[in-house]
Amino acid sequence: MRVGLAIEATGLVKRFGEAIVVRGIDLSVAQGSIYGVLGPNGAGKTTTLRMLLGIIDPDAGTRTLLGHEAPIEAASQVGYMPEERGLYPAMTPREAIAFMGALRGVPLAEGRRRADGLLADAGLAESAAKPIRKLSKGMAQTVQLLGTIVHQPDLIVLDEPFSGLDAVNQARLEELIRAQVARGATVIFSTHVIAHAERLCERIAIIARGLVRFEGTVEQAREKLRPRVRLGTRAEDGPWRAALPADAARIDGLWQFDLPDGGVEPLLAALMAGGAGIETLSIERPGLHDAFVAIVGEAAAGDVAPAPADEAAA
């Protein structure tokens, strides 16, 4: 394993019957980073995470987890929250978190002490003694996450952690993830909601149909696309139209097209000289969701969710 990597995987392949779900995935996750595995439902994200953790074995390829070639040897250093949530409904949050810590070697008394602190930090101190069945879905999911980190793992693996949470609980989860990295942990999470990765991740892997279609920083993904120009003019026609690219389209009263190679200055000069009568002109950088669509194609991106309006404004 290379120095500074929490996870290193090469050529991971997984078949279920005749179906090849993962087709040869390479991943490298730096220690102390937040890494996102993005893709539509069914892309192979969960299968990849489970191979990395040793829950299932790959049919081909190798993986190293926190310096161990056998992932089971790193189990005590890992916190894993699967997509399928599960807590004992009669337990209180305090006892559930302490119990999950005990499974990772934390004495129950110490687990309860840590649980009290974690619940207080998450704004759930008043719910510490309530049965979990009386908590909201978001609160119960937060409790499960706190149980995932109570033993202070070096690596935290979260499978679709934002699924089913409202905007408030999503924001709290983002804060918690950042706090874990601040103490030195590495976080890798899968998601099909691009907004969280755009805000949180230092690097991402975009997976579609069992393959990594892109690996790099969010900025590198966004640079796959040109900035988008939106132009409103007083004139309907005239010599200025020659300045627009051939693929310019008029949508909702505005001309829309990719920024030409020469940049905005020559475009502006040609529009003004041609009598366009510029009313509005904006240049919008592409978001990560736009880049995802460009990288893997419309078909693979069909069920990937962009930021909802309230999240985009957050």
Rank of each mutant, 00 (worst) to 15 (best):
Val3Ile: 05
Val212Thr: 15
Glu126Tyr: 01
Asp258His: 07
Ile55Trp: 03
Thr142Phe: 04
Ile156Asp: 04
Gln152Asp: 15
Arg133Ile: 02
Glu110Val: 13
Ala6Thr: 00
Leu103Gly: 14
Lys45Glu: 00
Glu95Lys: 13
Gly61Leu: 10
Ala6Ile: 00
Gly4Pro: 06
Ala109Cys: 01
Thr64Asp: 06
Ile177Ala: 03
Tyr80Glu: 10
Val168Trp: 11
Val193Asp: 06
Leu271Glu: 09
Leu211Met: 11
Trp255Lys: 11
Ala129Lys: 14
Glu279Gln: 14
Pro306Asn: 09
Ala312Thr: 04
Asp121Lys: 14
Val264Arg: 13
Val21Asn: 00
Ser127Glu: 12
Met100Glu: 01
Gly101Lys: 07
Glu175Leu: 01
Ile132Asp: 05
Arg113Tyr: 02
Gly101Trp: 07
Ser28Cys: 07
Asp116Phe: 01
Thr191Gln: 07
Pro286Ala: 06
Pro308His: 08
Ala208Asn: 10
His289Asp: 07
Leu200Phe: 10
Ala243Tyr: 11
Ile188Asp: 04
Gly11Asp: 13
Gly274Asn: 08
Asp166Val: 06
Thr48Tyr: 08
Gly297Val: 08
Arg213Gln: 14
Arg183Leu: 12
Leu53His: 12
Lys130Thr: 02
Val304Ala: 14
Thr191Val: 05
Gly297Gln: 10
Glu83Pro: 05
Ile34Leu: 12
Glu69Asn: 11
Gly42Cys: 10
Glu236Ser: 14
Arg209Ser: 14
Ser127Leu: 12
Thr92Cys: 05
Gly24Gln: 07
Leu176Gln: 13
Ala205Met: 07
Ala276Lys: 11
Pro40Trp: 03
Ala167Gly: 01
Asn41Met: 09
Ala30Leu: 08
Ser28Tyr: 03
Ala179Asp: 14
